[in-house]
């Protein structure tokens, strides 16, 4: 059975797709940002926003 791909490997593969090569230090720093952003999206994906369409800012009359 294949070993699961680590998040770091996924990130490396995304960089490879864009033709981006980084030093080890720069890669590790960028990976920290990537990991934080992944955490954000994974938290959002657990929630349910079925009553809402994208990017709305005004809603007509709203009474608390």
């Amino acid at each position: 059975m294949n070993k699961p791909i680590s998040q770091k490997q996924v990130f490396k593969s995304l960089l490879d797709q864009k033709g981006i090569t980084l030093s080890e230090q720069d890669f590790n720093e960028a990976y920290l940002s990537y990991r934080n952003f992944r955490k954000t999206y994974s938290e959002l994906m657990k929630e349910n926003f079925r009553d809402f369409e994208p990017r709305q800012r005004t809603f007509g009359e709203i009474n608390e």
């Binding site: 995304l14 960089l15 864009k18 960028a30 990537y34 934080n36 952003f37 959002l44 926003f49």
Partner: peptide
């Protein structure tokens, strides 16, 4: 590059959030 790999589903979920 920290934001690479965001899927359309993730972007739209964020937009609905």
């Amino acid at each position: 590059i920290g934001g690479l790999g965001v899927s359309s589903e993730e972007y739209l979920t964020a937009s609905r959030a």
